[in-house]
């Protein structure tokens, strides 16, 4: 990274540069997980890191999610900053005791004397007829747990920078990236560790400014919000787009401020509705802002309440697309222009 920026970098490449930066500059960082020496487990996000930094620091693991996650936590208690990688987050469920009972609890439970400074990377990898157990977006589940920080980068820049911030954070962090973003392309700016805020000071950002509706998402859903905003412009509807970035602890101030301005709220979430992120954002807004600011009922667009199907015909309907979501927003939000002429 000798230039000030690199043009046309993909999200997957940005994750790789995050790893590269960490392994190069922090000797106590190591990566540990299944498929790290394979060309196809983690897309292009870790290509040949083991050749660059050695197989002692980029470690392909046995098929033992629970023990490997626990071992990463153990190493973090002894001064290391491990990144344990679950190439499909469905398999993270096998490590739940270590993530929820151990990593999230040790600091508080032992009187603030230990730092389980582990980063647990879970990759959302769905679509392609992969079915119910190769498709889940389980971020809401982890965001429920005090003690875990949960980050979901949506941009190329964040894919790298939030990974670095996660690993340098003294708390356990669940870093969730999404294979549907791996080809997203943007300019990637030079990384300066000292200029970047620590993870505890990172939160939601406004990706686009508008007046008529607030669109909120995290990870791939935040990217979809940006695309939906482009569609809505064609109907002269201007959107505030908020990328949550960090969903635990969740800071909803920016969303509240935006909804006060626009009077309309739509939350997009690539997971299920019940007890999920979308419902949490909506209720946090409704708790705080005077109801007369609202011009419509808030809307959430989530997955159907069913496991992901394998069959192509069913899968096409299971995952909504930007066009369908735009249509739904226009239907549910009524005649925007009757209220806010453009």
């Amino acid at each position: 990274m000798k230039e000030h920026f690199l043009k046309n970098q993909t999200y997957g490449q940005a994750i790789r540069s995050g790893f590269e930066y960490l392994l190069e500059n922090h000797k106590n960082v190591f990566a540990f997980g299944q498929g790290l020496w394979s060309p196809w487990y983690v897309g292009n996000s870790m290509t040949e890191l083991e050749k660059q930094f050695g197989k002692e620091r980029v470690i392909d693991s046995p098929v033992s999610e629970l023990a490997c996650t626990g071992a990463a936590i153990g190493a973090s208690l002894c001064g290391y900053r491990p990144i344990v990688i679950h190439p499909r987050m469905d398999f993270m469920l096998l490590a739940m005791d270590q993530i929820i009972n151990q990593a999230a609890k040790w600091r508080s439970m032992l009187g603030g004397q230990v730092s389980p400074a582990v980063t647990i990377r879970g990759i959302i990898n769905r679509g392609g007829e992969q079915g119910a157990q190769h498709s889940q977006s389980l971020h809401s589940l982890f965001a429920h747990i005090p003690g875990l920080r949960v980050v979901m980068p949506s941009t190329v820049q964040d894919a790298r920078d939030l990974l670095i911030s996660s690993v340098l954070c003294d708390d356990p962090v669940v870093y969730i990236d999404d294979r549907w973003l791996y080809e997203r392309e943007e300019t990637l700016f030079f990384y300066d560790e000292h200029a970047i805020k620590t993870l505890s000071h990172q939160g939601p950002v406004l990706r686009r400014e508008g007046t008529d509706i607030t669109l909120v998402g995290a990870g791939f859903s935040a990217y979809q919000c940006e695309l939906i905003a482009e569609e809505l412009i064609k109907n002269h509807i201007l959107s505030d787009v908020i990328d949550l970035r960090v969903i635990n602890p969740l800071d909803v101030n920016l969303v509240q401020k935006s909804v006060k301005k626009t009077g309309r709220l739509c939350v997009i979430d690539g997971s299920w509705k019940n007890c999920g992120l979308a419902g949490e954002v909506i209720s946090a807004v409704l708790e705080k802002i005077p109801l007369h600011h609202l011009k419509n009922n808030p809307l959430r667009i989530t997955l159907p309440e069913a496991p992901a199907p394998c069959s192509r015909a069913l899968e096409q309907n299971y995952y909504s697309d930007v066009k369908k979501m735009t249509l739904k927003i226009r239907e549910k939000m009524g005649n925007v222009h009757a209220v806010t002429p453009v």
Binding site: A67, G70, A71, I73, G74, A75, L77, C78, Q98, Q102
Partner: peptide, 16 residues
């Protein structure tokens, strides 16, 4: 629960 955590501490010890 502490069994794999101890294994990780041993990883750290080996690296050290």
């Amino acid at each position: 629960a502490t069994i794999p955590i101890a294994v990780g501490a041993a990883m750290a010890a080996k690296m050290d």
